[in-house]
Design a protein around this nucleic acid. Sequence first.
DNA 1: AATATATATCGACTTTTCCCGATATACCAA
DNA 2: TTGGTATATCGGGAAAAGTCGATATATATT
Lengths: 100, 100
Amino acid sequence: MDQVEIFKALSNKTRLQILNWLKEPALNFPDQPNADFENVGVCVGQIQNKAGLSQSTISEYLSILQRADLVSSTRVGQWTYYKRNKEGIKQLSKIINSEL
Amino acid sequence: MDQVEIFKALSNKTRLQILNWLKEPALNFPDQPNADFENVGVCVGQIQNKAGLSQSTISEYLSILQRADLVSSTRVGQWTYYKRNKEGIKQLSKIINSEL
DNA sequence: AATATATATCGACTTTTCCCGATATACCAA
DNA sequence: TTGGTATATCGGGAAAAGTCGATATATATT
């Protein structure tokens, strides 16, 4: 994964917030019907509600975060659930410590 | 410091390279006359030579990195020396570990 | 099959970033 | 004080990102 793409993904207030929210899904998305946060994550609509931007924008943002390996997604029925990608974030931490 | 600004500063290949070069100045800038890298850093011209972009662009890039607290500068005579800002980079590491 | 809902993709417009050359400023040397 | 070198700032054109509404696609329900 290109390092620049990772930092670009993080260069946006809303995307940083989303990542931060996904760290504590139970706390930040109490309204989600499917509350199996650990395994599946949070669905796009919930994230959109909280962020207050358009549906298309949030969908786009989530795919930017996913391309940067910062989140991962699972489709269940008509919903797509996104969650933090621990591995990718650990990688980022490693980059910072070894190259910057 | 605004987190978004930090990540924006890192969202560019050349700026990432500069930061990486400044981690090992003696290795990466063997031609610099003033070789007191630890205390003063590397001057703009040397960085420009290595990066291969215009003088104005590199000067701008260095000030972007400085605004993000990733480097610091010292003026000595007609030269401005830039070096890594350990403290700022540690802060960044902390952000990643606590918020992402 | 028809309809409803959730998400993704498209096209467009605006704002920001990239990067340059030209010029200004700061300092040094003669 | 005149000229030379290093860096900073300014103005601009091209490319990328931000964000939207409209539309397409996938799935579920009836």
